[in-house]
Write a protein that binds this DNA or RNA. Structure first.
Lengths: 346, 346
DNA sequence: TGAGGCATGGGCAACGTTGCCCGTTCTGTG
DNA sequence: CACAGAACGGGCAACGTTGCCCATGCCTCA
């Protein structure tokens, strides 16, 4: 097979010529617009089929529509985001909209800013932002340009919609679970704070705050111990090593998320301690790995697919014209597994 | 803060007016083109800064360039792809190009086809396809339209570049490792075959083929046992349950990838068997979870970041005009951990 | 002093699509 | 049979950017 020169792409004009109609007519058929007879519709559709015509998104963009939804994702390594994307994809399937993903960098404010600008420059019809660390003021600035849904943050906005997990409730579930098991010294692994916005807007801040509150409410203010790393396997490992070096050491660790919890499990293992006999470990997100029998990590399930579906639905509504702001919150559920058990006595 | 109407976006004409020059002049400055004095350059740059101007990708696209690289990814749930994306991002950082990701669905040929078309419709300057299942003929058709790099497939093409891991060598390493440990009955978990192209082009086919070859070369043709599922935790679990039901059951399982290997570990655990005393498990990809001390999965490391960087570099070269096809292969390394051990005697 | 070249800046058309508007033909009703 | 109104199809401009080309003015060199 020889290398042919790339032939010119089929345009609406080619279709019009082939179907013996005007370009306007073809456009009408494409958009299901008024003013096209069934006969013409068929003829044009046949021509489109025959020539393999596909509209060019760029030219459409110049007229205002791209049929593209931009999704800002901190980093694809976090498996929970995959659930969100599944939900988004499910909701968008069957519509004319296509999701494109852009990685924001996770902890790099500058990278995230560039990613957002990239989406704005590309004239997407709407943006879904997954747990952005960008200040709220900037999010609202973007939301004024184009329909925007923010996933995972708790602030109220009158300009964009919010879809989030009730991190407060979820954290309360898991910390109480540990306390009920008799734990008094419970370490917590949190993330470095990059945002400059209102505190507690980001999940890791809510979780840390609620952890502190619940501990205090149970008279365990002295047992509070927060280490700040990153929510990765490596971060969770390092944080747990630090917690285990305390004297007395905590008998349980709420890792804040499953990824650091996996690192915590490995750190406990390396220290020659047993889970849960010596140390209990709990995560958050209920990822698939958490359910594996040899891991069996206690976690908090937030329905990521539902959040994704809802976020995409809300965004489409906004694209279609809704302007009133909406909020949607998912109620988390504790999934107790074998990584948590009664506190060791003594 | 009130909801303002979205103001019109700043265009090149606004900048030109503000800087008292022509739009052509502004365009020249933007593109670092010839024919602009340093003085004018400064003036225009100041105006751009002042107005916060950003070029619109769609309008540029109509003139032939979008500064966008499309990345087709089967599914974000596979952690190995995150390494590839890190490499791609690293190489693209500092250039004017922005990567956008589109999910192909993994096992759904139709979804992948739509994803590829979405990228073509959006006039990206080049496409990086990660382990596509689309027939080669179609890949070449796309590659004639725009610069294309295919990651993970082994076929030769004169039209697109290929970047892949030497799956044959990697599989030989891991299967030999198991044989040297004394295993004779080694199960293998493979994936359903969706492609219709040349066999062995996709990694899972190469791995299965090489597994068979190495087994036979060591006189272990009778010990060959392949189950076909999907390369997910769930698939690996189900496949391993099936393998463990054999009589006699295999003493080792080469899971084909880390994700199914994790499922395999859990299945062995559930069956009340020990790893590696009763059953050895090996994966492929050397993901971060494999390195966790409590998992300690034997795996094969393929340098995903290097593959990603190389693929992105090759693509940029093609965007700049190279037409000769290139191939780049990464040499894998066996990482033996505690999930593999001597075959049980008797 | 004149010719040629270079540096600099701008005019213009074109990329593909769609919304607005206008003209023609057809249909139904008095 | 006349007329209003609907149905239908097409012309045209505009979206923002860039590549090609031309005009101007200055400098250099023979």
């Amino acid at each position: 097979m020889a290398v042919r020169e790339p032939r010119r792409r089929v345009t609406i004009a080619d279709v019009a010529r082939h179907a013996q109609v005007s370009t306007t007519a073809v456009s009408k058929v494409l958009r299901n617009a008024y003013g096209a007879s069934p006969a013409m519709r068929d003829r044009v559709k046949a021509a489109i089929e025959e020539l393999g015509y596909r509209p060019q998104a760029a030219a459409r963009a110049m007229r205002g529509r791209t049929f593209t939804i931009g999704v800002l994702i901190p980093h694809v390594r976090n498996p929970f985001f995959a659930d969100l994307l599944d939900g988004i994809g499910e909701q968008l399937g069957g519509t004319d909209y296509q999701a494109i993903l852009v990685q924001g960098g996770g902890t790099d404010l500058g990278a995230e800013a560039r990613a957002i600008e990239a989406l704005v420059d590309r004239q997407v019809d709407g943006i879904l932002m997954i747990a952005p660390i960008t200040p709220k003021a900037r999010l609202e600035e973007v939301a004024r340009w184009m329909p925007t849904i923010v996933i995972g943050r708790h602030e109220r906005s009158t300009i964009y919609d919010a879809v989030f997990d009730d991190d407060d409730a979820g954290t309360e579930l898991v910390v109480r679970h540990l306390i009920e098991l008799g734990h008094r010294r419970i370490g917590h692994i949190s993330q470095r704070n990059f945002g400059r916005g209102r505190p507690a807007a980001l999940p890791h801040l809510t979780r840390a705050e609620t952890y502190r509150r619940v501990m205090r409410e149970h008279g365990l203010g002295d047992g509070i111990d927060v280490v700040t790393t990153t929510w990765t396997e490596e971060g969770g490992h390092a944080g747990t090593v630090e917690l285990l070096s305390r004297s007395p050491r905590p008998t349980a660790v709420f890792a804040g998320a499953d990824q650091p919890a996996f690192g915590a499990l490995s750190a406990v293992h390396e220290a020659g301690l047993r889970v849960p006999q010596d140390v209990s470990i709990a995560g958050y997100d209920d990822t698939r790995m958490a359910a594996m029998a040899n891991i069996s990590l206690t976690s908090v399930d937030q329905d990521g697919a539902l959040m994704g579906r809802t976020a995409a639905r809300l965004l489409l509504e906004r694209v279609e014209g809704r302007t009133a702001a909406m909020r949607f919150s998912v109620t988390p559920v504790l999934v107790a597994r074998r990584s948590t058990g009664p506190a060791p006595t003594g």
